[in-house]
């Protein structure tokens, strides 16, 4: 009995893992993790990109403070956690360690299992593991639904951005195409430049377009996506436009892009 009382006293005396109360995020990809997982009153500031058109949770960013993300401006906010994907100094962890501020590195995950683990890890660090669990449950369900509805064939799919980049193996877009039940036509590692001649010679069953409807890219006539030959090829091909917000960062919500591709494949 005595040992039980001692154990209980010890448990009660141990403070719960403190959740961060002043979170600053350094780029709009990191913003999405913070907006998805943290309470509003935990957020000291988001990046200036948090309200961009292609920010997935841009509606939630309204009214929250923004920062340029320089060391001085971030430290002036007295953060207890800095969240980063690509923003801030490249050696952010070392830099902020000098000021005893931990850095949570998120994103940059090229597969759904990695994105899932990343999300759970971020949720734990931000003090809301249950929110991470809810989001991963939703992700698992949606992935399972896509698998269940996929046909036996795997039609050839190509992802093309307005800037002329085509997704190859080892990218989240490759995982998105696979999750949708398609087969990525490009097997090269990483991103490659638009193989225009090859695409016209052997057109894929479906071309998934990224950022073609985005204001900044739509108005730029010099982008490879505006090439007259490509425009003609796209006019005659089956295409699906992916919501920019689902593909601007490598994260769990890219599942929305997979569902869009799957729906387009089913409709064919």
């Amino acid at each position: 009995m005595r040992w039980l009382l001692c154990a209980m006293a010890l448990v009660l005396a141990t403070p719960a893992a403190a959740e961060p109360r002043r979170i600053v995020s350094l780029d709009y990809c990191a913003d999405q993790f913070v907006l998805a997982l943290a309470d509003r009153d935990q957020i000291a500031a988001l990046s200036r990109g948090s309200r961009r058109d292609d920010s997935f949770y841009r509606a939630r960013a309204a009214g929250l403070r923004q920062t340029r993300g320089t060391l001085e401006e971030v430290l002036a906010l007295r953060p207890d956690l800095v969240v980063r994907n690509w923003g801030g100094p490249w050696d952010a962890e070392t830099v902020y360690a000098r000021f005893h501020v931990p850095v949570l590195q998120v994103g940059g995950t090229p597969t759904f299992p990695e994105a899932r683990a990343d999300l759970l890890d971020a949720a734990r660090t931000l003090g809301h593991p249950e929110r991470g669990a809810t989001l991963t449950r939703d992700l698992d369900l949606r992935l399972a639904r896509l698998r269940a509805n996929a046909s036996a064939q795997t039609p050839a799919v190509m992802y093309l951005s307005a800037g002329g980049a085509v997704a190859g193996a080892g990218t989240m877009m490759d995982a998105v195409i696979a999750a949708a039940g398609g087969r990525n036509v490009r097997t090269d590692a990483s991103w490659v430049v638009l193989p225009l001649e090859h695409m016209i010679e052997t057109p894929p069953a479906l071309i998934a377009l990224g950022f073609f409807e985005h204001g900044r890219t739509r108005s730029n006539p010099w982008l490879p996506g505006q090439h007259p030959a490509l425009r003609r090829a796209l006019a005659g091909a089956r295409t699906v436009s992916l919501p920019s917000a689902t593909i601007a960062c490598e994260a769990w919500y890219a599942i929305g892009a997979a569902e869009r591709i799957a729906a387009a494949l089913r409709a064919s």
Partner: peptide, 17 residues
């Protein structure tokens, strides 16, 4: 994109942080 951002930042030069 993360690696690209690091590379570009380096080539543009900075003494921040």
């Amino acid at each position: 994109p993360g690696a690209l951002a690091d590379l570009i930042n380096w080539t543009l030069g900075s003494v921040e942080a």
